[in-house]
């Protein structure tokens, strides 16, 4: 029987392991008055992910380290965090893509209430999402599929990729200072329906996003686009929604 190992490339190329220092911002509300930074030295391979490093800390050094994760390959959106000051998914960030001559700084995403270590309260984020009516609004009840041309389908393809990880929203300087702002992720999810040819609720959503906490708060810093682990052109989507608001239609 073929045996499989978790790190074939390490075996194959005889890549040596090396020590990486993680400096993690810790906070346990039951014991700590304030967050603090803690160092951990971990043996890693260059093909490892940052998530592997966090697991090595949790499983071998300190079981109290708390973070969310599930799929471990960038599709479930659980493990968005600030890695060296940039919002990324821990499971999609490879050690070889970081400068390991320096420590790797890990902290929770910003702008949402800190719960424990790398875990934040996601509820305000999902509340903004729910407010933009993120579902198809269509009055017809066809007994077959609604038709949609490949061109119409392509118009909102990019924003269907969103995994609601909050990397974009929690990288936005406007959101950091104004938690009432809908934030990029909610606008992305509004975009996904506003430009769907089958949807009839565009006007409602455009009105919602014309609010003072809506699209006009966006200052096009492009942090969101840079942060998106799914490669969604978030700032462009926001710009398209702004234009639609001005036009009064998609």
């Amino acid at each position: 029987m073929a045996t499989q190992t978790s790190n074939p490339s390490a075996e194959i190329a005889e890549i040596p392991s090396f020590t990486v220092t993680f400096i993690v911002r810790r906070f346990d509300p039951e014991n700590d008055a304030e967050p603090y930074w803690q160092d951990f030295d971990v043996e890693m391979y260059s093909t490892d992910r940052v998530l592997d490093g966090l697991h090595k800390i949790k499983w071998d050094i300190d079981g109290t380290l708390s973070f969310r994760r599930s799929c471990a390959h960038g599709i479930c959106g659980s493990d968005a965090m600030r890695i060296n000051g940039r919002n990324r998914l821990a499971c999609k960030t490879l050690i070889k893509d970081l400068d390991i001559s320096q420590p790797i700084y890990i902290e929770a995403i910003k702008g949402l209430p800190l719960e424990k270590d790398l875990i934040v309260d996601m509820e305000p984020f999902f509340e903004s999402y729910r407010q933009v009516q993120p579902f198809l609004i269509a009055s017809s009840k066809p007994d077959k599929e609604r038709l949609q041309s490949p061109e119409d389908r392509a118009r909102f393809d990019d924003t269907t990729k969103c995994i609601l990880c909050a990397a974009c929203t929690s990288s936005c300087p406007v959101f950091w200072t104004d938690g009432q702002y809908f934030g990029p992720a909610a606008i992305v999810n509004a975009h996904r329906f506003i430009f769907d040819s089958r949807d009839e609720g565009a006007q409602v959503r455009l009105d919602i996003l014309n609010d003072k906490e809506g699209v006009w708060r966006c200052r096009t810093t492009f942090n969101c686009t840079e942060a998106c682990p799914r490669g969604i052109e978030v700032t462009k989507a926001i710009a398209e929604v702004k234009q639609a608001v001005l036009r009064g239609r998609p």
């Binding site: 579902f135 198809l136 269509a138 009840k141 066809p142 599929e145 609604r146 949609q148 041309s149 490949p150 389908r153 909102f156 393809d157 269907t160 329906f193 769907d196 089958r198 949807d199």
Partner: peptide, 8 residues
Amino acid sequence: NMGLPFNR
């Protein structure tokens, strides 16, 4: 009908 964006 619920909105799933299938390829066309």
